[in-house]
């Protein structure tokens, strides 16, 4: 197993109290595998990604990278692990230092790792070729490139030290549709060639379903459902997953007119004072008294590994709706 996270909790002190941005999240990612992580803004998905990067302090739980505990590594020990986990950021503008040339940006991880100038130049040329950027890109500044090309620069930088795991934090959300597909395809090609594992964070289900082997859905810092991507998308077991799928607009006018939509009422409650019991109950169309009293645990929903955190079993009902056939 490449990465294992057990019961990860990330807390932030805010003026209004302790914010449990991530609570009790466990996950596993294998080499060459993509775990999709979806949820709306404020659900803790980016914080989880940054916790795995060890960019925010982990309050609870354990992180294992290739069997090694990295939860509490510091200093040199942490520095030695860092190259194995790298990140592709959301914003192609702010993730690149505007005052550095592309060659210097892509070579930065190498220079931090103590490579010689000559080796860096060779490796940078190789990396630029890998992400299909022209050779002369190295001597230019980021602002001379379009959004999609800048994201390629960010990907080249993440790949510099041959990481085992790449955290992709909304890597295509800021890009135009036509360019989005280019970058998604590039990420897939790289995975096929290098066998890296991806944690692919996105709010956009349509992108995730195109890249993910497995899928995890988060709501208010907790995992509400996970399983094989195809299973979760075809047979969602949690009302929230079902609502997300239903809310995502489909690029098919005929289907859009006929399908049944669940439009969730209300908005995300404050994560500082989450509802008692099941955090989703305030917006859940099926909530009952039990949901306020008792927090549901993640339990197996089907035989093939799909798990859900809900007291009730909705998979049959949702599966019927997902195919467009009224239940």
């Amino acid at each position: 197993m490449l990465l294992q996270a057990r019961d990860i909790g990330v807390h932030f002190a805010t003026p209004r109290g302790l914010l449990r941005a991530v609570a009790g999240v466990s996950l596993e990612i294998d080499a060459g595998e993509t775990l999709g992580l979806v949820g709306e803004s404020g659900c803790g998905k980016s914080t989880l990604g940054r916790a795995i990067m060890r960019l925010v302090p982990i309050a609870e739980g354990e992180l294992l990278l290739e069997g090694q505990y990295i939860t509490r590594l510091e200093g040199t020990a942490l520095k030695q692990v860092r190259p194995k986990v790298q990140m592709v950021f959301q914003d192609p503008v702010s993730s690149l230092n505007p005052r550095r040339r592309v060659g210097s940006l892509v070579g930065q991880p190498l220079s931090v790792a103590g490579w010689s100038r000559r080796d860096i130049a060779d490796r940078v040329a190789e990396l630029l070729a890998q992400v299909s950027l022209p050779k002369d890109a190295a001597d230019r500044y980021p602002h001379e490139f379009s959004g999609g090309q800048r994201q390629r620069i960010g990907i080249a930088r993440a790949l510099a030290l041959s990481p085992k795991l790449v955290i992709c934090d909304e890597p295509v959300s800021a890009l135009d549709v036509s360019v989005r597909a280019q970058v998604v395809n590039l990420l897939k090609d790289i995975q096929d060639r290098l066998g890296v594992g991806y944690l692919f964070i996105s709010h956009d289900l349509s992108v995730v379903e195109n890249v993910a082997d497995r899928l995890m859905v988060m709501y208010l810092g907790r995992v509400v459902e996970q399983g094989r991507a195809a299973d979760v998308l075809a047979r969602p077991a949690h009302p929230y997953t079902h609502a997300l799928l239903s809310a995502a607009p489909v690029a098919n006018p005929a289907l859009a007119r006929t399908r049944q939509r669940v439009v969730l009422q209300g908005e995300l409650p404050s994560p500082v004072s989450p509802p008692s019991g099941c955090a989703f109950r305030t917006r859940c169309p099926f909530a009952e008294a039990r949901c306020a009293a008792e927090a549901p645990l993640l339990r197996p929903a089907t035989a093939d590994g799909q798990q859900v955190a809900c007291h009730f079993d909705f998979s049959e009902r949702f599966a019927a709706q997902a195919t467009g056939v009224p239940a």
């Binding site: 960019l55 790298q86 990140m87 993730s95 930065q108 931090v112 790792a113």
Partner: peptide, 25 residues
């Protein structure tokens, strides 16, 4: 900014991030 996080993620020491990355900006 995300580029500062990127520098952290690659293990760059704080003093270098401050002097070579943030300060010139």
């Amino acid at each position: 900014r995300e580029f500062v996080q990127a520098c952290r993620a690659m293990g760059m020491p704080d003093w270098r991030i401050v002097l070579a990355e943030v300060l010139p900006n």
